[in-house]
Structure formats: structure tokens, C-alpha cells
């Protein structure tokens, strides 16, 4: 079940070409979806504009549930982009995967820890940036010694733990889903009987993965806002 990854080294950096491909595809899909559905904007929304406005309101509610809109309004665009990008990424690996000569090309970009941890690190980094920017370095620094000074090491560990859990939760869910899908597809469906036997669990698991992918994108967005709120709000 383990496929090779198409790794190339360029300028001393390792590139997984499958990741590059899937990241680009996911980005392009999100971009096209968003831009095409907001081409014809009207005061009376129709079709896709309704959907996009629903997404915006959904993210707005997530932000409102964690912090003041006065503080959180600036994260609206970040939130919408994250939830859409991660949802689309999670969905990409569901219908099929493409393996060429034992090299896995088509998969969810979020089924790679490097990608999810990058996003998680970006979020946590942003939370620190906005923490300093919106509350000042003093107030930001003091948070590490509250409620007691000896909590400092725990607080430091918390930051790294947040990053790791945020990224690995997403990675684990999506990767596990795809592993099971490929197990069902390649491991079980070897003969006619096996294919028939594998069809039903495939269907069930794909449905479940759809659910998991949607939930995970929601959780990622939610936790993003929670971490940001933790840093930028003075009362929590």
C-alpha cells in the first residue's frame, strides 16, 4: 500500500512533485470556484452567490463565537480561505487516486504532514503576530506568565503542542481515510468477488470520508479562530 513519492531536489530543497501538483490543483479549484461564483454580484443574490454568502456567514459565526467582531473581522478572509481550501483539499483524494509506476500522484494535499503542519504553523505564527500587533509586546509577553510565573514552560510547550495537534489532526484524519480507501480498492478488490465485496464498504467509507473531510475543515477553521482569539482578546 505504500507508494513512492516523486521527490526531486531543486536549489537544495526537496520537492514532492505530487504535493506541488495537488496544492496547485486545490488552489486553482478554490480560486475558480470563488471567482466564478462571485462574477455576477447582485443585491438579490442568486445561485452560487447565495452559497458563497452562506460560507461567509458560516465563518463569520465561527469568528463571532470565539471573539468580538471588532477584533475578529480582520480574520474573516483568512477563515473563508482556510475553510474552503482545506475542504477542497480533503475532497480531492476521495473519488480516486492516481498511481503511475508505483508513484502516487493524485491524493489529497492534506494527506501530507508537511502541508498540514505548514498551514498549522502559519496559523500559530499569525496568532503570535497579531497578538503582538493588537495588544502590544508587553501584554503579549505577560500572557506567558499567567496565571503563575512557573506556568511559563507549560505555555511554551502549549504553543508547539497547538501547532502539532492542529496540523496532525487534519493530516491523520485525511491520510487514514485515504489509506483505507486504497486498501479497499487495491488490497481487497483483486478478483470479481473481491470487487463486489469491496464495493459496499468503499461506498460507506467514501461517504464517511466526505463527512470527515467537511468536519475537519470546519474544525481547522474553528481552532484557527480559537487560537487567534486566545492571543488577540484581552479577556478569555
Amino acid at each position: 500500500m505504500h507508494h513512492e513519492a516523486p521527490i526531486v531536489t531543486f536549489l537544495g530543497l526537496q520537492f514532492n512533485l505530487a504535493n506541488i501538483l495537488m496544492i496547485t490543483i486545490a488552489t486553482a479549484i478554490v480560486f475558480l470556484l470563488a471567482v466564478l461564483s462571485t462574477r455576477k454580484l447582485a443585491m438579490k443574490p442568486t445561485g452560487m452567490q447565495n452559497f458563497m454568502e452562506w460560507v461567509m456567514d458560516f465563518v463569520k459565526n465561527i469568528i463571532n463565537s470565539t471573539m468580538d467582531w471588532k477584533d475578529g473581522g480582520r480574520f474573516h478572509i483568512l477563515g473563508i480561505t482556510i475553510i474552503m481550501y482545506i475542504f477542497v483539499s480533503n475532497m480531492l483524494g476521495l473519488p480516486f487516486s492516481i498511481v503511475v509506476d508505483g508513484v502516487l500522484w493524485w491524493k489529497s494535499p492534506t494527506a501530507d504532514p508537511a502541508v498540514t503542519l505548514t498551514l498549522a504553523t502559519l496559523i500559530v505564527g499569525l496568532s503570535h503576530f497579531y497578538g503582538v500587533k493588537m495588544r502590544g509586546a508587553g501584554a503579549y509577553g505577560k500572557e506567558f506568565f499567567k496565571p503563575f510565573w512557573f506556568m511559563f514552560p507549560i505555555k511554551i510547550i502549549e504553543e508547539f503542542a497547538n501547532t502539532l495537534t492542529l496540523g496532525l489532526r487534519l493530516y491523520g484524519n485525511i491520510y487514514a481515510g485515504e489509506i483505507l480507501l486504497s486498501l479497499l480498492a487495491a488490497g481487497l478488490a483483486t478478483g470479481v468477488g473481491g470487487t463486489i465485496a469491496a464495493a459496499l464498504p468503499m461506498l460507506v467509507w467514501q461517504g464517511f470520508s466526505l463527512f470527515v473531510g467537511a468536519i475537519q475543515s470546519f474544525i481547522f477553521c474553528m481552532l484557527t479562530m480559537v487560537y487567534l482569539a486566545h492571543k488577540v482578546s484581552s479577556d478569555h
Binding site: L13, Q14, F15, N16, T81
Partner: peptide, 13 residues
């Protein structure tokens, strides 16, 4: 680590 992927993901996002 695939630093290339990481940078690419960051930039693309």
C-alpha cells in the same frame, strides 16, 4: 523534510 513543499504550500496559500 520536504522543505520545497512547505515553502510552496505557504506561498500558494
Amino acid at each position: 523534510v520536504n522543505w520545497g513543499d512547505i515553502i510552496f504550500q505557504l506561498v500558494m496559500f
